[in-house]
């Protein structure tokens, strides 16, 4: 067991906690999407469908995999954490865009969206998104994924070339 250095420990804890949250809420969302709704699903704002749940589970699993690898001392595990963050944000954007589109539709051509309030459209992908967003902001420089042997020098250039991750 290689001891993790401190920066990796933070990422590992972040990935573990975020990942578990995404998986648990993903499972709930999937059940709700399949029709098992009740007071509990209202409370957790599970407004999406089964596929929304599936996607949350995938994101969570990617994060947890990152946690597991970092725990084993595998430095490469950060890739799972970072890509997990990007996937989480991508699906949050998907949800946000759908909501934006609904509002735009209601505003321009007057659909039946009058009854909307912010809580009706909240979903796990959205209210969990501050976590990955914080991760992205905190480690934005890490998204270059320094190749082995190239740490320290030339990092700035690598940011600009195709070495960068998304």
């Amino acid at each position: 067991m290689t001891p993790m250095d401190r920066t990796m420990r933070t990422r590992a804890v972040f990935a573990g906690v975020t990942g578990v949250l995404y998986i648990v809420l993903g499972c709930f969302q999937m059940l709700a999407g399949l029709g098992l709704r009740g007071a509990w699903s209202e409370m957790l704002y599970l407004n999406g469908g089964a596929m929304d749940g599936f996607v949350l589970i995938i994101v969570g699993t990617v994060m947890v995999q990152g946690y597991r690898e970092l725990r084993q001392g595998l430095h490469e595990g950060v890739a799972f954490v970072y890509i997990g963050i990007l996937l989480a944000l991508f699906f949050a954007i998907v949800e946000l865009s759908s909501i934006g589109a609904s509002y735009l539709g209601a505003w321009t051509i007057g659909g039946d969206y009058a009854g909307y309030n912010a809580l009706d459209i909240l979903s796990p992908a959205l209210y969990l998104s501050p976590l990955p967003l914080a991760g992205l902001l905190a480690w934005r420089h890490g998204f270059t994924l320094h190749p082995r042997g190239a740490q320290g020098n030339g990092t700035k250039d690598l940011n600009n070339v195709n070495g960068g991750l998304l």
């Binding site: 799972f80 890509i83 270059t144 994924l145 190749p147 991750l165």
Partner: peptide
């Protein structure tokens, strides 16, 4: 500059996992 592991390799460990 010999990069045995490129940044793409890191990404692929996830996306082709």
């Amino acid at each position: 500059c010999q990069l045995r592991v490129t940044p793409s390799d890191y990404v692929d460990r996830v996306l082709t996992h």
